[in-house]
Design a protein around this nucleic acid. Sequence first.
DNA 1: TTGACATGCAACTAAAAGGTTGCATATTAT
DNA 2: ATAATATGCAACCTTTTAGTTGCATGTCAA
Lengths: 112, 112
Amino acid sequence: MVAADEDKVFKALADASRRQLLDRLRRQGGLTLGDLCQKHDMSRQAVTKHLVLLEAANLVVTVKRGREKLHYLNPLPINEIYMRWIGKFEQKQVQALFNLKQALKENDHDKT
Amino acid sequence: MVAADEDKVFKALADASRRQLLDRLRRQGGLTLGDLCQKHDMSRQAVTKHLVLLEAANLVVTVKRGREKLHYLNPLPINEIYMRWIGKFEQKQVQALFNLKQALKENDHDKT
DNA sequence: TTGACATGCAACTAAAAGGTTGCATATTAT
DNA sequence: ATAATATGCAACCTTTTAGTTGCATGTCAA
């Protein structure tokens, strides 16, 4: 995954509406634009724009069937980001850093 | 983690400069604002703003030591998001969905 | 105490993001 | 063919975001 793609994925995930759409597609794949417009208080065009971004980020893949466009979740990019980003932080370090602020605070407090 | 916090984390990760800062803090913790300004062609105040957002998202924790402010990476929120978001997608499903577009494309092609 | 250093705060600007409305195109069913 | 349905495209508006500059505050060292 190239840097530009990574950026698209993060940007796509940055919006709560788009995350909701991903949640919805996870529960049920193959939904049309019309389906996805239900339960959202924004216009169809707004949803379209979100889906375009999600598709550009490869988080959603689509299939045209006649006049309909079916949407499916593709969780692979998210997984890739985990492997590339979060996977960087070794598990041992995580716990250590989790306690770091507290430790340093007390250390600092001692000095004062 | 509350929904509002989740949003902060995603928004914080949406910017490439902030991701770079996190990368830098991962390589070396305890850097000051001045340190973090090096190798970035933006003003000190721009970096400050990024760090404020990262701290609000709890991706960075800080300790004041005299007139300096030391910054440390806190990877836990990212990990939480993985557990809550990416962990949702079972591994089996991942591979299945990975091949879905191709399969559906061929299926659609047959019908045409 | 005074100068140098490290950071904080506020006002402002430019660009990007999220949303709207209106119209166009393509497909299905009668 | 024609009407209804499903989606696509484009212009426009408003809010948010990323960045700037200028000045204020706080801390260290001579």
